[in-house]
Write a protein that binds this DNA or RNA. Sequence first.
DNA 1: CTTACTGTATTAGGTACCTAGTACAGAGAG
DNA 2: CTCTCTGTACTAGGTACCTAATACAGTAAG
Lengths: 131, 131
Amino acid sequence: MFAINPTDPAPIWRQIEEGVRRMIALGALQPGASVPSVRDLAKDLRVNPNTVARAYQRLTEGGVLAVKRGEGTYVADEPALPRKTERNEALRDAATRYASTAIAVGSELGDAVDEVEAAYERVVREHRRKA
Amino acid sequence: MFAINPTDPAPIWRQIEEGVRRMIALGALQPGASVPSVRDLAKDLRVNPNTVARAYQRLTEGGVLAVKRGEGTYVADEPALPRKTERNEALRDAATRYASTAIAVGSELGDAVDEVEAAYERVVREHRRKA
DNA sequence: CTTACTGTATTAGGTACCTAGTACAGAGAG
DNA sequence: CTCTCTGTACTAGGTACCTAATACAGTAAG
């Protein structure tokens, strides 16, 4: 699936939530496809099942996943994307954080942009590989 | 000085540390200039003095700040920049995180880059204003 | 039916972080 | 000298997060 970054200050359940959203956005998880059980994914990521359950629960509430109790969890038929406003807001926040650290370490704008392009392609490639 | 983002999962002391580094990188804090006392900055940021002290201590250990005990804290005469390796690593990590969230919310590479450029200019302008 | 899987809920424990309060030593002004 | 500022150190408390262990209800296969 994807990897958990222990050095990332973000909570693990949020990293899982975002990871699933990435997989769906990139087509590595198609609508209707089944996602690993909480126990399986927890074992895969070396993480507690409760942590995975929390991420799945949030994704279900958000309309991204659909639960068939006792059977499994699946990608929703029409996985809900964040509203345009929320998406822009999230992107803006993330961009601000990135720009802040780029400046803090003494990087020029050009370098920062180059690094983003490289990272974007890298992440896409990484997910396509496992699709 | 700068603002603390409560929604940022990064610890406050790290946000302060990074903020000071930004100010120096942008010239808003010149070498030899005095930085606010731990109590003043704590009051300004609505944060506990111990949290500021922790950030200052790290910056001092890193050669960015110089402490004159009983007198105050100053920007080092030659504030140490992160080594090229560390800088590239930090930038790469940050770029990966940014690209990941951009993809997760369904943004194209172009939008992600545009947002970074806007954020970069915004952060620079914000600091220049208070220099 | 039993067995084995699914998601969900609950409780308890540990760690990291932030807060609050207090105390101490060094430097400068009165 | 006293007074006031500086950074530093320590203890105690609370919250968020992750872990661990257990239990329960629903579904499917044997």
